[in-house]
Simulated scan of single mutants.
Amino acid sequence: MPHATAPDGVTIAYQVRGEGDPLVLLSGQANSHEWWEDVREDFHGARTTITFDYRGTGGSGESPTTYSTRQFADDVVTVLNDLGVDRADVYGTSMGGRVAQWVAAAHPDRVRSLVLGCTSPGGKHGFERDDDVRRALSSPDADVIRRTLLDLMYTPEWLATHRGPYRTLGDRRMSPRARRGHLSASNLHDAWDVLPDITARTLVVHGDADVFNPTANAPLLTERIPGARMVLVPGARHAYFEEFREVASPLVLDFLDER
């Protein structure tokens, strides 16, 4: 597995597959590139997909200091530089969508088109999940957390016919320190002030039944980013890109193919 080295010396593992123009796929909080394993092939033939393992996940090293979505965005650029890729389409979901906001705002010359999936601007302007969800996710019982996450990610109908593995539930190999760092990075994300600076063509996608990252965040992003458009996937929860891949993947490809 190839690695790039960030300016602070942390090694970032990355993966490249498929053929076509480069498409960076950014995973959710506390997840490695495996988040995309079941759907990335939807883009192959039309796109070369580039994924990487966030600091503290998969084959990447841990951050020597703190973690932040801005830092993860800089790691995206480190990987692109290592690959010799000047510009790429960027598609981020969940925390990956928060990272993608910073990639597009801080490195506008590197982003051709931007897709923000099931994500939030963060800060005081973003809509947070309700207290019941927060309490369930902070349970000391790992089984309660797993059941809660599955219910937030997928519909009961889909779970009844798909027995796993479920790749969106987190990287179990993470250290407790890295896991806390990812949680802090996501919780402290606030890109509200820079969203109007995004110049890339932008599509905002969200499940209309998402309570993990409330659907109300989608119109916030759409209104804040110049020229952005929004699509809500009917009946979808947080992992719309997996459960509703027959809708979501072509939707994203059609948007990326527009010029």
Rank of each mutant, 00 (worst) to 15 (best):
Pro234Ala: 03
Thr57Gly: 01
Val211Ala: 13
Asp75Lys: 04
Trp35Tyr: 12
Asp130Lys: 04
Ile50Lys: 00
Asn187Met: 15
Leu195Arg: 03
Ser94Phe: 06
Asp190Tyr: 09
Asp193Val: 15
Leu152Phe: 02
Arg47Thr: 00
Asp208Ile: 05
Ser94Val: 00
Glu246Cys: 01
Ile12Phe: 01
Val79Leu: 06
Glu37Asp: 13
Leu83Asn: 05
Leu83Lys: 15
Gly18Phe: 13
Gln15Cys: 08
Asp190Arg: 06
Val233Asn: 05
Val90Gly: 10
Asp89Met: 14
Trp158Gly: 02
Pro2Asn: 02
Cys118Asn: 11
Trp192Cys: 09
Leu232Gly: 05
Asp141Val: 12
Gly58Asp: 10
Val77Tyr: 09
Pro108Asp: 07
Asp38Ser: 13
Arg112Cys: 12
Ala46Pro: 03
Thr78Ala: 03
Leu150Asn: 07
His3Lys: 12
Arg110Gly: 14
Gly170Arg: 08
Trp102Lys: 08
Arg237Tyr: 08
His107Cys: 02
His206Tyr: 15
Val233His: 07
Ala105Phe: 03
Leu26Trp: 01
Arg98His: 13
Gly235Ala: 01
Leu221Trp: 00
Gly18Asn: 12
Thr66Met: 08
Leu23Asn: 08
Pro156Arg: 05
Gly227Gln: 14
Arg179Ile: 12
Ala216Val: 13
Glu258Pro: 11
Asp210Trp: 13
Val211Met: 14
Asn217Asp: 10
Pro165Tyr: 09
Ile198His: 11
Gly20Phe: 10
His182Ser: 01
Asp171Thr: 12
Asn187Cys: 14
Leu256Phe: 07
Thr49Gln: 03
Ala178Arg: 03
Gly117Ser: 04
His44Phe: 06
Gly45Asn: 09
Glu62Ser: 07
Val79Ala: 14
Pro108Gln: 06
Arg224Val: 04
Arg40His: 14
Val39Met: 07
Gln101Lys: 11
Asn31Met: 08
Trp192Met: 11
Gly164Phe: 09
Trp158Tyr: 12
Gln101Cys: 14
Thr155His: 03
Leu188His: 07
Asp75Pro: 08
Gly96Thr: 01
Ser60Pro: 04
Thr48Asn: 02
Ala228Ile: 08
Leu80Lys: 05
Asp109Glu: 12
Tyr67Gly: 12
Asp131Ile: 15
Ala13Ser: 07
Asn187Ser: 15
Trp35Cys: 10
Arg245Gly: 02
